[in-house]
């Protein structure tokens, strides 16, 4: 086989992927840059405005508010996600007859669509008739004539959004922990046990340290995924009350498609892109240092 033919073959094999990749990933990157420099509506490209829209973003309190909301969601959901995922993995990893049952139950919500989980959440947390308030009244946690307004109070709304998100997506992270747990060789535990270690010591000195690499992976994936949060918030609170839960993607969407201002939306997307890029780079550096090698 000669090199020329192999080169030709490689070209043909790469071509379909690259056509789609260029059209739908690389081209939008450039297009976004162009759009962010123009006044651009759903109907047409209007006039060139240079960096004006970026300047406007820096002064736009709604942008900072939305960015903070997203960051707040990240802060609330990431640590709870990791702890819960690990907890569930430990439950599902116990040698019991219910092992597969637990795994299935914890993972099941992950396959449901965001619309379904959002509406189930929305209806469960309704005041007056919703399940959650009903159950609280039944348990006498909540007096009969009182209501908790889950979605019209900022703190409660965040609670609902984080709870629903955890319930929906923790399964995937649990599986990742589960496979990491199963990768820890039994011999390590046996050796430690022979040395007289207690269960608690086994957990702190063997299990947890072995899970460090996977935790770091989950952390990054979770950070990036949470920064992109949109659909469940859009469907449950629409960003309310008073835009206090409106994430950055929703603001981008509303500015572009509701207020007919694609140029500004594109500029905001670029700022978001930059933030996510920095997060990925930090993680890469961190991984390199931790493993002392090249990134995976």
């Amino acid at each position: 086989m000669n090199g020329k033919r192999e080169g030709m073959f490689a070209f043909l094999f790469l071509l379909p992927f690259f056509v789609a990749y260029v059209l739908f990933t690389l081209l939008p990157m450039l297009k976004g840059l162009q759009m962010s420099l123009y006044k651009w509506t759903l109907i047409a490209k209007l006039h060139f405005v240079g960096l004006d829209q970026y300047v406007q973003i820096m002064r736009d309190p709604e942008f900072w508010n939305a960015l903070w909301n997203t960051t707040y969601f990240v802060i609330l959901s990431t640590p709870t996600m990791i702890v819960l995922a690990l907890g569930l993995a430990l439950v599902a990893n116990r040698n019991s007859r219910l092992k597969t049952f637990y795994r299935s139950v914890f993972f099941l919500p992950s396959v449901l669509s965001v619309t379904v989980i959002s509406y189930v959440g929305l209806f469960m947390f309704r005041p007056y008739t919703g399940l959650v308030n009903n159950v609280l009244k039944w348990l006498h946690v909540l007096p009969e004539n009182k209501e908790i307004f889950w979605l019209t109070d900022e703190t409660n709304a965040w609670l609902v959004l984080v709870a629903v998100t955890l319930w929906w997506t923790v399964g995937i992270n649990m599986i990742l922990y589960l496979s990491a747990l199963q990768d820890i060789p039994d011999s390590m535990y046996e050796a430690a046990r022979l040395d007289g270690a207690t269960d608690r010591q086994l957990f702190w000195y063997i299990t947890l340290p072995s899970l460090r690499p996977i935790t770091s992976t989950i952390l990054l994936l979770q950070l990036i995924a949470s920064y992109k949060v949109f659909a469940q918030i859009w469907l449950i609170t629409k960003g309310g009350p008073l835009n206090q839960t409106r994430p950055i993607i929703q603001y981008i969407y509303e500015e572009g498609f509701k207020n007919n201002n694609l140029g500004y939306a594109a500029a905001m997307s670029y700022v978001l892109f930059l933030i996510l890029l920095i997060l990925s780079l930090i993680h890469m550096k961190w991984n390199q240092r931790a493993e002392g090698g090249t990134p995976a």
Binding site: R126, P127, Y128, T129, G130, E147, F149, T152
Partner: peptide
């Protein structure tokens, strides 16, 4: 404030 309305009626 006069409580004529059911608050946060869904």
């Amino acid at each position: 404030t006069n409580k004529f309305v059911k608050l946060n009626d869904p």
